[in-house]
């Protein structure tokens, strides 16, 4: 340990921190220890695996885009506008965090399903059905992942110095321009962090997806669904699929991080 004064860490913090890290990392070690490394390249080459992986990455990204488009304005509303029932709305935003994802999936069916509150109207008016479609996967993932984005962005907005917005106003910027030119750039790190959390959550989404969008290879079978089904017959296959998902997502996040850090 370093002797420099600023870097001394109290043991009372170091110990639980180490235990916490161990607790998070050990299951990963378990996966790595039991992984059939030799069959890994072969599994990766399987068209079914590649299809599920591609679908996972595409839907998680689409869900993140959807969450950013809807979640950032929502976070702004919660952080900046005093309105009656704001506390209630803030609590409602976290509902998908508390709700078991399978229940979330059922709830989505009750709204967007073929006989759902909106689904029946969508079907009758536009011929749009969402369950069992890739769009349905995106919807299910966005539902469970959005709170992560909203909470992160709201926190960033609350932490941002509002006087910059006032300065923008005195320079002639209207509220929308202030939002896009000043507020958003200021909270960009918060939005990025929220988007990463959101993407990661969407990528691992299982319960709401299988309930709302079902499971069909190439259309709605994402990696977590493939992992779960592999678990039914072949534990090793499930481990390999999990590791593939893990490796790819970590690689992508690391790559994005480098790119972000490179631009600032």
């Amino acid at each position: 340990m370093s002797r420099r004064p600023g870097q001394r860490v109290p043991l009372a913090l170091l110990l639980p921190a180490g235990l916490g890290l161990l607790f998070l990392v050990l299951p990963l070690v378990g996966l790595l220890a039991r992984a059939p490394w030799t069959s890994l390249p072969r599994r990766l080459a399987e068209p079914g695996v590649r299809t599920a992986l591609r679908l996972s990455l595409e839907t998680a990204t689409a869900a993140t885009v959807l969450c950013v488009l809807l979640g950032v304005p929502l976070a702004w509303l919660l952080a900046r506008v005093e309105f009656p029932g704001r506390r209630l709305v803030r609590a409602l935003v976290t509902v998908p965090l508390v709700l078991p994802p399978v229940v979330g999936g059922v709830a989505l069916l009750l709204v967007f399903g073929r006989r759902g509150l909106l689904g029946s109207w969508l079907d009758a008016t536009f011929g749009i059905t969402l369950p069992f479609t890739t769009a349905g996967v995106v919807l299910a993932e966005a539902f469970v992942a959005m709170p992560f984005l909203v909470i992160a962005v709201e926190g960033a907005l609350r932490g941002a110095d509002r006087r910059y917005e006032e300065a923008a106003a005195t320079l002639g910027a209207g509220r929308w321009t202030t939002f896009t030119r000043v507020t958003l750039p200021l909270v960009a790190p918060g939005v990025a962090a929220g988007a990463v959390l959101c993407w990661a959550r969407a990528l691992g989404e299982f319960g709401a997806t299988i309930t709302f969008a079902g499971n069909y290879p190439g259309r709605t079978q994402t990696m977590p669904l493939a992992v779960y089904l592999a678990l039914e017959t072949d534990l090793q296959a499930a481990i390999v699929l999990s590791l593939i998902l893990l490796t790819v997502s970590v690689a992508i996040l690391a790559g994005l991080r480098d790119r972000w850090l490179g631009t600032t």
């Binding site: 009750l110 073929r114 969008a213 079902g214 499971n215 069909y216 709605t220």
Partner: peptide
């Protein structure tokens, strides 16, 4: 071509019950 390949019977039944 099924709409979905469920992970268990209860999942398949739920889809029928919900009319999906």
């Amino acid at each position: 071509t099924p709409a979905t390949l469920e992970q268990d019977v209860k999942g398949a039944l739920a889809k029928v019950k919900l009319g999906e």
